[in-house]
Nucleic acid binder design. Structure first.
Lengths: 277, 277
DNA sequence: TATAATAATGACTAAAGAGTCAAAAGTCAA
DNA sequence: TTGACTTTTGACTCTTTAGTCATTATTATA
């Protein structure tokens, strides 16, 4: 492990139960077994460490959700797996993020904060996607309320588990939650949160840029170097995106190519991009 | 307003968006327009201020919930009012408590923390009480799950409202939540959280002491000085509680006297005490 | 008005922590 | 083994802040 990562991980450990301001660099370097000077070889300042920690946690979260999305599983089972993963992430990352978010706001500049917030919304985006896979157009109107309630219930149980130090079987809990959602969906209540209300905040309406897709392809490419079908698909997408007026037909076709090869995450990015074209 | 209260209120304002450690006494006294010395006339230390702030917020919360409980309203409407109040309190007090709770733990000693945590559980206790009033024994088994889900959904919406700076009609939202709860109750799902799990943490099982009831009576007494029925009831409760073996019959009878006079809060304390006798 | 009592001030002390840098320790090719 | 190089160290500086206390301002009382 690099010294940088060591510092990040030890800091997360320490900051789990202390505030940023009340934790000195000395505390951190003591925990790492390194000197104060060594810290400043990896990080320019305390501020830089904080940003790095947030990026580290968010990256961890996103990559795990990506893996989940790329699994080939029946939609409801995927929702259950999503809950299980979310509970694990809540346990590991959420206390840190929620406790220190406010403090971070005072330390680092607005653009960094905005970036972090947008990335944090990824979990909600995924909730919406999974719900759509299961219930289709039936929940078109009520999906925002559902997403809020689901996230709330998840947090409710997560908090209960953490505070009571209860060991609850996450899979059982997830099955239970899926049942509750079923009940709520079939009750078909008049929704309260409309699309307009939900998307008023641009952070809830992630805008995928050309570069995001190209980056993602570059990341995946190597893995599929021997599969000419996939490399061709990648090639076609890249070509089409370079054009001034990319054709929806090509991109959508390629996106279903991706889905059949379990590159769901990339497919989602592409679909989002098409929607906003 | 006393200087002490001025300092507490200004501190809450400032600490809404800063951490405790990064806020100096000087910052606080500047905001109050007083000198540093004046601060130390009201508080022995920064630590004492923090404890005072938490006590202030919790007292505010409890007294408002008490008022609500003492209202004479149809149970479902009371649940709606409970939601409206909770949303207001979330908006006002919750961000402070959740952000600074962890930091407080490092500063003040365990006993103080424990005390604060127990008082914070009051909202959950009230949820359970109100649910019992509406649905009776039907939810005996599932009430713990319901309470967790309800709290979660409330928090979900509260967070949405705060983050999006949306102005949502709290009463409409509360009606919506009550409908959702109806749906969940009537679906009659197998519960996940059992009484044993819930009460494992003694904080979820508030033990009312003789003194709590006597204190509460002393507080109410003055208000009812002209009503001989109520003063007699008070007198009888106090007499009975002083005995080595207070008789349940008397106490339960007096508790229903209290309910008929809208002294619901005191009645609840008394019933809880009887239950644990 | 004069005096005593109380309240408020802010310069001061001592402690702690962020960030620096000259010197020490370690590495490795010749 | 040497010595040119990199990495690591921790004592040091400078800043900030909790808490004190001699002094000043205000109020109450005679």
């Amino acid at each position: 492990m690099s010294k940088r990562d060591l510092i990040i991980e030890k800091s997360i450990e320490i900051l789990f139960e202390r505030s940023i301001a009340s934790t000195s660099i000395q505390d951190i370097t003591n925990a790492c077994g390194i000197s104060k000077g060594a810290f400043y070889l990896s990080f320019k300042s305390k501020e830089e460490l904080l940003i790095a920690i947030f990026e580290y946690l968010i990256q961890d979260m996103i990559s795990k959700y990506q893996e989940l999305i790329n699994l080939q599983t029946e939609p409801k089972e995927k929702l259950r797996q999503y809950f299980v993963l979310s509970f694990k992430l809540f346990e590991k990352n959420y206390p840190f993020i929620s406790t220190h978010a406010r403090e971070l706001i005072n330390i680092v500049d607005k653009e960094v904060i905005n970036n972090i917030q947008t990335q944090c919304k990824i979990a909600d985006q995924i909730t919406l996607l999974l719900l759509k896979d299961i219930y289709g157009s039936k929940i078109e109107e009520s999906k925002y309320d559902l997403s809020i309630c689901i996230r709330g219930m998840m947090k409710g149980y997560a908090e209960f588990i953490v505070l009571q130090k209860q060991s609850v079987d996450y899979y059982e809990l997830s099955k239970f939650l899926v049942n509750r959602i079923d009940v709520l969906v079939h009750a078909d209540l008049t929704p309260l949160i409309t699309k307009e209300m939900y998307e008023q905040d641009p952070k809830n309406h992630v805008l995928i840029k050309k570069e995001d897709i190209l980056d993602e392809i570059t990341k995946c490419k190597e893995q599929y170097i021997d599969d000419s079908f996939i490399t061709d698909t990648f090639e076609l997408i890249m070509e089409e995106l370079q054009k001034e007026h990319p054709r929806k037909a090509i991109l959508l076709g390629m996106s279903s190519n991706l889905v059949t090869n379990n590159l769901n995450w990339l497919a989602i990015l592409l679909k989002q991009y098409i929607n906003n074209m």
